[in-house]
Deep mutational scan, measured.
Amino acid sequence: MVIEDPKTNKLIEVEKLPDGTYKVTIYDKKTGEKKTITMSKKDLEKLLKAL
């Protein structure tokens, strides 16, 4: 799943891993910076609600 946040000009890509956690990659379209973090479903839901 890919989500675009027009306010921050970032793309957020979410991928479910076999162990039940989620790999979240955040791309900054302005700088080209890429950050990848792994989080639980509960933390991911908090992140998505904040957008």
Rank of each mutant, 00 (worst) to 15 (best):
40 S>R: 10
20 G>V: 01
28 D>Y: 01
31 T>M: 03
27 Y>V: 09
14 V>C: 03
25 T>N: 05
26 I>V: 09
50 A>R: 06
15 E>D: 14
13 E>G: 08
34 K>M: 12
4 E>G: 00
4 E>D: 05
33 E>H: 14
34 K>V: 10
30 K>P: 15
6 P>M: 05
31 T>H: 11
28 D>C: 02
32 G>W: 09
48 L>V: 04
26 I>Q: 12
11 L>T: 14
8 T>K: 06
37 I>C: 08
24 V>N: 00
19 D>P: 02
1 M>A: 13
34 K>N: 07
35 K>A: 12
31 T>D: 04
35 K>Y: 11
48 L>S: 01
6 P>W: 03
2 V>R: 00
10 K>F: 10
40 S>P: 13
4 E>P: 00
2 V>I: 09
22 Y>S: 07
37 I>S: 13
36 T>D: 11
6 P>E: 11
21 T>D: 11
19 D>I: 03
13 E>L: 05
5 D>K: 00
17 L>T: 08
25 T>D: 11
1 M>W: 02
6 P>F: 07
36 T>R: 07
39 M>D: 00
25 T>Y: 08
37 I>V: 08
7 K>A: 14
44 L>I: 08
14 V>P: 01
42 K>P: 15
6 P>Q: 13
10 K>E: 13
47 L>I: 09
35 K>C: 03
26 I>S: 12
7 K>G: 15
42 K>M: 10
43 D>T: 01
39 M>I: 07
15 E>S: 05
51 L>F: 08
6 P>C: 13
37 I>P: 00
35 K>G: 07
31 T>N: 08
22 Y>V: 02
37 I>G: 11
23 K>V: 15
45 E>H: 06
17 L>M: 13
38 T>E: 09
26 I>G: 02
41 K>M: 13
26 I>W: 07
12 I>M: 03
47 L>F: 13
48 L>A: 01
17 L>N: 05
16 K>D: 09
31 T>R: 04
34 K>P: 01
25 T>A: 11
17 L>S: 09
15 E>V: 10
47 L>V: 09
42 K>L: 15
27 Y>C: 02
6 P>K: 05
40 S>F: 05
18 P>W: 07
37 I>L: 10
3 I>H: 06
1 M>T: 05
40 S>H: 12
17 L>K: 03
31 T>S: 04
27 Y>D: 11
8 T>L: 06
50 A>M: 08
27 Y>F: 09
49 K>P: 15
42 K>W: 10
27 Y>K: 03
45 E>G: 05
35 K>Q: 14
23 K>G: 06
8 T>C: 06
15 E>M: 03
16 K>S: 11
12 I>V: 08
32 G>A: 03
40 S>C: 13
20 G>S: 10
10 K>I: 13
20 G>E: 14
17 L>D: 04
38 T>V: 03
45 E>V: 06
10 K>T: 15
31 T>W: 05
17 L>R: 06
41 K>P: 04
4 E>S: 02
20 G>P: 00
6 P>R: 00
20 G>Y: 08
24 V>G: 04
37 I>D: 12
18 P>C: 15
